[in-house]
Design a protein around this nucleic acid. Sequence first.
DNA 1: CTGAAAGCGCTTACAG
DNA 2: CTGAAAGCGCTTACAG
Lengths: 356, 356
Amino acid sequence: MTSIKDVAAEAGVSVATVSRVLNEHPSVSEDARTRVLAAVASLGYRPNAVARSLRTDQTHTLGLVISDVLNPYFTELARSVEEEARALGYSVIIGNADERPELQDHHVRTLLDRRIDGLLVSPTDGGSPLMLDAARAGTPMVFVDRWIPGVDVPVVRSDGRGAIRDLVAHLHRLGHRRLAIITGPAATTTGQERVEAFREALEECGLDLPDEYIGQGDFQADSGRRATERFLDLAEPPQVVFATDNLMALGALDAVRARGLRVPDDIALAAFDDIRWFVHTDPPITAIAQPTGELGRAAVRALVDRIEGRAPRSVTLPARLVVRRSCGENPATNENPATNENPATNENPATNRSQT
Amino acid sequence: MTSIKDVAAEAGVSVATVSRVLNEHPSVSEDARTRVLAAVASLGYRPNAVARSLRTDQTHTLGLVISDVLNPYFTELARSVEEEARALGYSVIIGNADERPELQDHHVRTLLDRRIDGLLVSPTDGGSPLMLDAARAGTPMVFVDRWIPGVDVPVVRSDGRGAIRDLVAHLHRLGHRRLAIITGPAATTTGQERVEAFREALEECGLDLPDEYIGQGDFQADSGRRATERFLDLAEPPQVVFATDNLMALGALDAVRARGLRVPDDIALAAFDDIRWFVHTDPPITAIAQPTGELGRAAVRALVDRIEGRAPRSVTLPARLVVRRSCGENPATNENPATNENPATNENPATNRSQT
DNA sequence: CTGAAAGCGCTTACAG
DNA sequence: CTGAAAGCGCTTACAG
């Protein structure tokens, strides 16, 4: 590899001057600058980022630890994170935790060893010692989507309560009374919140949530399948299953299909997280959509603020209900099922937008 | 951050000794080793990977430049790559090209600047000067999925010809005669090969492929939508649309749905790349499945072989046809549509497995 | 405006 | 077995 020394030799200047030209330091003569630039071009020189990082103690790199790359929600989040980071002059290294705490720790450790400038994480659990230590040690950090209570780290997430209330009202209006939920791990905030919000919304409608209608899942498809099978085995199965993420909804569909049953005739289905395929599934699936791209961008901005010495802000954005046909026909738009999607989408315009 | 000096001071030895302990160098006294280890533990010391890389000229990092993170095929590929790399002691940095050559170059450049040990790429185009230079300069490199002809770099990919021939035979058997294709960019090998294989397969059935039945796509959903609209506007629209990736199939579904038409009654649809949602779409989609996980693992093994001085091997694995209902009822399994999936899956067991 | 020199945190021949 | 020292490729006060 050609180094800064080669460039200096070629241009007939010192390495200090080469470095100044490369870093656009003002005090370099026009003559020196041209000669250096010419040398850089003719040698095809590219500065060694490793050496530069060691010297400056900055890597211009953000670490992003997501819960699961195979989940389209996180994939979209990762994409918007990378995009915004790139716009701000950072690159991002993604670590996939696969919903496994040890793997999450592995990535956090590797990222820290590489001296990334800041860490974006969507925690898989309640917080390992490693992550808590990192936060306490002052590593610039921001939580996205999920967070760890009691840690002084900004959180960028969406609030699904309103949308879940809308969903339950929608289900109640369609005549459903026995509603079940497939939850995420209790150690995750999203896992907890979605059940709580669901339970509260049921109460508002005068319904309750019996234990056998709570399926313990882990945000992965298999757990959705198993939970749904258990629901279907009940003496009195639920009329609706609400999967708290899209992968568990996929598993639920597998289970329903395996029994030769139909959605929504035999059992209705709704999901948290909207994905493009939900428009084309059989039937199209009613889902709660998060402003994923916005979340990713806001998270990066918060982290970069923190890194560059500005005060980072937590951000909470509302999610919204997108009604499709998986819970039964919507009486309101019944007459024209083919175009059900659009009016329903606007049923619940984003309203409450809060920033802390 | 605590450095090796702090550990040396705490343990009462030189930094050389600390380094030896950390790198499991044999000649260290038992006594020194215990003291160093104790110091490491009590200080919570973690070696600075940046400094180590600068010194050893190895980063133990692989770069992976994929064409599109939002494409589940590449996401699955990325996951298997990371898994195998981790097993071999490497981490991976993913760059998402979004099917844009400039963005691809941006990532290759960044990765090279970081002095990754090797590069895994699925090229978005015919090869930029940057990439060709890197290959010529001897950067350890392996192509996955797509490749650039005329460059001396091992290729790990799957061969879809057999499966495409099976697909065309299946369509012909169902009575379809007017078959259209939505291709990928002509600059990509997969873009080219899939049309060629399709055209050859049609010829074997005595059919031809008129220009108006070739929709130029770019492997993204929008292009699939536009191509399909153009097909539907034809005086004599095709009876089948074969989308050469899953995202363009999604776009095709959007277009069909927007016209109020039905698959397969009004038009049949098949796709290259099988994804989990295809089981639950309306109707379930006939697709060509690649051994994605295998490809990712083989690619990593080839790259690591190259990095560690062993001879890397190119690998070609067969893809296989998975028949579902999007092209019309399969006469053979007609009597039991509900369980169509399983027998159909086995219709074309993977046969030709070649290694070069 | 420019260069010599120190130093970032490691590893590794070299001597002992 | 151990330590002093050089050096990886940069950047940046410091002097001039």
